[in-house]
Write a protein that binds this DNA or RNA. Structure first.
Length: 510
RNA sequence: GCCCCCAUCGUCUAGAGGACUAGGACUCAGGCCUUUCAAGCCUGCAACAGGGGUUCGAAUCCCCUUGGGGGUACCA
């Protein structure tokens, strides 16, 4: 039933807007989307905002941006509507109320008048005495009389599900098989809260049914509540959708579920939130490729694949049931691969916003001259993330004054002395003053020729020049850097570097 | 504590009883290339958690142990 030829599935991603979307959520959405596209069905976005205390309005925006960033377009959702609108649970309150009442009428639920205080002290007592925690079903045993009396007094109440006292419940998880749990292990979960809003247990089951959801993909943290959900769905007399619990994503250390942000032994910070990956300059295509292979495997012999290929091969019953840590190094490698596959023009478009932010220059300024056009092709293969671009080109945007040569090691290579470096700088300046055309190949040719005449190694010649031009030990290829800077600015920098070294040798001579 | 799930190189994974001297990828190490740094190419290190079964034969099936994870809310 999950092989080729599956009928169109209706799959929903149903996050609660309680904060920024993290990679685990994004992966769930991705698998949802993949399955909907694979079967030619629908991908539905539903907002589960039934917790007023934890609701954060901004997270909705963040959520939508994150999904769009990865390219997961939904077919029905709060912003575009659909045949089962509204897709925001807080706007569906009457439905849940009605359904909860229906369960009471059928004897599957009951009103509970216990105060939060009683519940808390009950829990405390259970913990203290080493008993298992849980509601003691006090109100389930209320007589009709007692119940109507409390209702008449308008004592605040919730509606709880009445779990069968005996027997057991079996449900099926597509990747784990049948799972059986004794009913006595389950709680009379709250279905409708005192504020009139439903809990997940009610709202999700009702909406999944009403919205004709065929497959529910959700995090493994829901596995323990699945039997309750089965019981609720059974109580209504509905069909259970296919359940797939996606393995949790572990903290990079492999210990515990990934949370917002944690530090690893190396003291290195790992990203977890979708917008953080965005800001760091991971490409959506790379992220798509990466995430698809966590919890599922495209092909053990093929690491890189397109969205179309992924849709074509994706299969729910191949999902891996075991928890996994994100292989961050692989993400970097993949991202580098995708960056290299971009055309220089496309990379420029992607890179300029990052450069603008980090260098404090406007995008117009960055686009106004040819520096980036020369530099981008040569830094392309050096980038793993877009936010590394600034480190590769910042020197080109410094004025002569801003560039200082305080460290002689920058200009003097290993096994060289200051006098030799000065000679190299002078020779370089001489060449750069007259070489034509002022292009990387021509300049390189002239430099190599001169190196041969001088009988010095290319590295010894280029090193001091590199230091003078970029102010760095490590820079993009020298001759492209020189071209990006232009003849005038390059000569200026070499001149200043020469002066600096000369001052140094004089001091030593004293 | 109780319930449930999971278990192959450091990490992501392939493996659905014989094709496994366990394959791929990332990382790491070494080499080639080389103007720095990368990229690229080549080589290498590295795993079936342990113990019992079942079977002619087990990484693959069963049981136990251990380890890890999840849940135990008027949160999702």
């Amino acid at each position: 039933m999950t092989r080729d030829g599956d009928s169109p599935a209706r799959v929903r991603f149903a996050p609660s807007p309680t904060g920024h979307l993290h990679l685990g959520g994004l992966r769930t959405a991705l698998f949802d989307w993949l399955w909907a596209r694979k079967t030619g069905g629908q991908f539905i976005l539903r907002i589960e905002d039934t917790d007023r205390k934890r609701f954060e309005p901004e997270s909705l925006d963040s959520l939508i941006r994150g999904l769009r960033w990865l390219g997961l377009e939904w077919d029905e959702g709060p912003d575009i509507g659909g045949p089962f609108a509204p897709y925001v649970q807080s706007q569906r309150q009457e439905i849940y109320l009605e359904k909860a009442q229906e369960l009471i009428d059928r004897g599957h639920a009951y009103r509970c008048f216990c105060t939060p205080e009683r519940l808390a002290s009950l829990r405390e007592e259970q913990r203290r005495t080493g008993h298992r925690t849980g509601y003691d079903r006090h109100c389930r045993r209320l007589s009709d009389e007692e119940r109507s009396q409390r209702e008449a007094e308008e004592i605040p109440s919730v509606i709880r599900f009445a779990v069968p006292l005996e027997g057991d419940t079996t449900f099926t998880d597509l990747v784990r098989g049948d799972i059986r749990v004794e009913n006595k292990q389950m709680q009379d979960e709250v279905l409708l809260k005192a504020d009139g809003l439903p809990t997940y247990h009610l709202a999700a089951m009702v909406d999944d049914h009403l919205m004709e959801i065929t497959h529910v993909l959700r995090g493994e943290e829901w596995l323990a509540t699945a039997p309750i959900h089965k019981l609720i769905v059974d109580a209504f007399g509905w069909d259970m959708p296919v359940l797939v619990h996606l393995p949790v994503i572990l903290d990079p250390s492999g210990k515990g579920k990934m949370s917002k942000r944690k530090k690893l032994v190396a003291g290195k910070e790992f990203l977890a939130l979708v917008h953080e990956f965005q800001d760091a300059g991971y490409l959506p295509d790379a992220m798509f490729n990466f995430l698809t292979n966590v919890g599922w495997n495209f092909d053990p012999e093929q690491e890189v694949f397109s969205r179309e290929e992924a849709i074509d091969r994706f299969c729910l019953d191949e999902i891996n049931p075991s928890a996994a840590a994100l292989p961050y190094e692989k993400l970097d490698w993949l991202n580098g691969l995708y960056i290299r596959s971009l055309s220089p023009a496309a990379l420029k478009v992607a890179l300029v916003p990052y450069l603008s932010r980090q260098l404090g220059l406007s995008e117009d300024e960055l686009n106004s001259d040819g520096r980036l056009d020369v530099l981008i092709p040569v830094i392309q293969e050096r980038l793993k993330r877009l936010d590394e671009g600034a480190d590769w080109v910042d020197w080109a945007y410094l004025t002569s004054d801003e560039l200082s040569y305080s460290d002689p090691k920058l200009l003097i290579g290993r096994k060289m002395d200051a006098a030799q470096s000065i000679a190299m700088l002078r020779a370089g300046a001489l060449l750069l003053g007259e070489v034509e055309p002022f292009e990387a190949d021509a300049i390189q040719g002239a430099f190599r020729e001169r190196a041969a005449e001088l009988e010095v190694k290319a590295g010894n010649f280029f090193g001091p020049i590199r230091g003078a031009v970029s102010g760095k030990k490590v820079s993009p290829p020298l001759f492209e850097s020189i071209v990006a800077l232009g003849r005038h600015e390059t000569l200026q920098r070499i001149g200043r570097a020469t002066t600096f070294l000369e001052g140094l040798t004089k001091e030593e001579g004293k």
